[in-house]
Design a protein around this nucleic acid. Structure first.
Length: 309
DNA sequence: GAGCTATTGAGGGGCCAGTG
DNA sequence: CACTGGCCCCTCAATAGCTC
């Protein structure tokens, strides 16, 4: 069995030698100078050698101390390097997300349970907001945002681009008939989302439909509210095909026309550049990009380049 | 003499192995 | 499982020695 002194006596010795002061070593190691003195004494007793020469209120290394310091530093550096190699940051704790309502309710919420099953050690807290989050002033770790993908100071990963399609309840009727062609929208109630009021105008223009007041109809604060109104049969909403895939699959909504309007904007996962190695963000990013790229998801049709800015 | 720093001894809290 | 005693290491307070 090798004779090894207690590790903390070596730590105290290295610090006191580096500072040539017990007091500064104590401050560095968050103990009192008395504790440092005790540790050094214990080490000297253990070794049977004086490591410091006490000159009044100054301490200086003896020649034995100098030589021992070199070996101790080498040893501590080896331990530190080995520890660093073994220390793999692991996810855990809380991950706070800020998500656009149009993304949160129809797309993210049904899938998030799968992520929690994979990572029970991580508690995901989700808030919805249509405002751009200020990472510096909030406790939000990451966000899903809709836009052009160029925001300063953040990493942005494109999830999928939008394809806008009109949707309605399968039971929705105009007069006595069903929606069959875009021109039928002249008799339909158009449902709008407040902060995306231009979408109907752009879609109608792309579909070549004229003579419709594209501003008429009820306005809703968020996309999920407009979709709920559509499901309830109150009119025709316009939404991203990927985000309503579950509604289309379950036939709560139908897309009566085969015209999808590609958008220059897309949904992005964004987070501050200085948090790109945060293990919580890393695992969530990997999961989210994989979900967006799954066959049948929007990502399979137009999965982004994963670019970051 | 004041201020700073190291030393010393007392006392206390936490940990752990041994014991009933 | 709870208790006990020993050990370790810390802080605190007093003291000593040095410098300005």
């Amino acid at each position: 069995m090798r004779r090894l002194p207690p590790l903390q006596t070596l730590h105290a010795f290295e610090s006191a030698a580096r500072h040539s002061s017990f007091l500064r070593a104590a401050s560095e190691l968050h103990v009192t100078a008395s504790a440092i003195s005790h540790r050094i004494r214990a080490l000297e007793k253990f070794l049977g050698v004086a490591l410091f020469r006490r000159d009044g209120r100054q301490v200086r290394l003896t020649s034995e101390g100098e030589s021992y310091l070199r070996a101790v530093r080498e040893g501590l550096a080896l331990i530190a390097a080995a520890t660093e190699r073994l220390h793999v940051p692991r996810p855990g704790g809380v991950l706070t997300l800020s998500v656009a309502p149009s993304f949160a309710t129809p797309w993210l919420a049904p899938r998030l349970a799968g992520f929690q099953l994979q990572h029970p050690e991580l508690e995901v807290r989700q808030t919805t907001s249509i405002e751009l989050v200020d990472f510096a002033k909030s406790d939000v770790d990451a966000a899903v945002r809709y836009g052009g993908g160029r925001w300063p100071g953040v990493c942005a990963h494109r999830l999928f681009a939008e394809e806008l399609v009109p949707v309605a309840s399968p039971q929705y009727r105009i007069g006595r008939g069903r929606l069959r062609k875009p021109e039928d929208l002249r008799q339909a109630t158009l449902l709008h989302v407040m902060f995306r009021l231009g979408e109907w105008r752009v879609w109608l223009k792309a579909a070549g439909v004229t003579g419709i007041d594209d501003q008429r109809g009820p306005k809703f604060h968020t996309t999920p509210l407009a979709l709920e109104a559509a499901i309830a049969g109150h009119g025709v909403a316009i939404a991203d095909r990927a985000l309503i895939a579950d509604h289309l699959k379950s036939k709560r909504l139908v897309a009566p026309f085969d015209i999808a309007l590609p958008s220059e904007y897309a949904y992005y996962l964004v987070y501050p550049e200085d948090r790109k190695d945060n293990p919580n963000i890393v695992v969530f990013k990997e999961w989210l990009l994989a979900e967006a790229a799954r066959p049948g998801e929007a990502g399979s049709r137009d999965f982004g380049t994963g670019q970051s800015n």
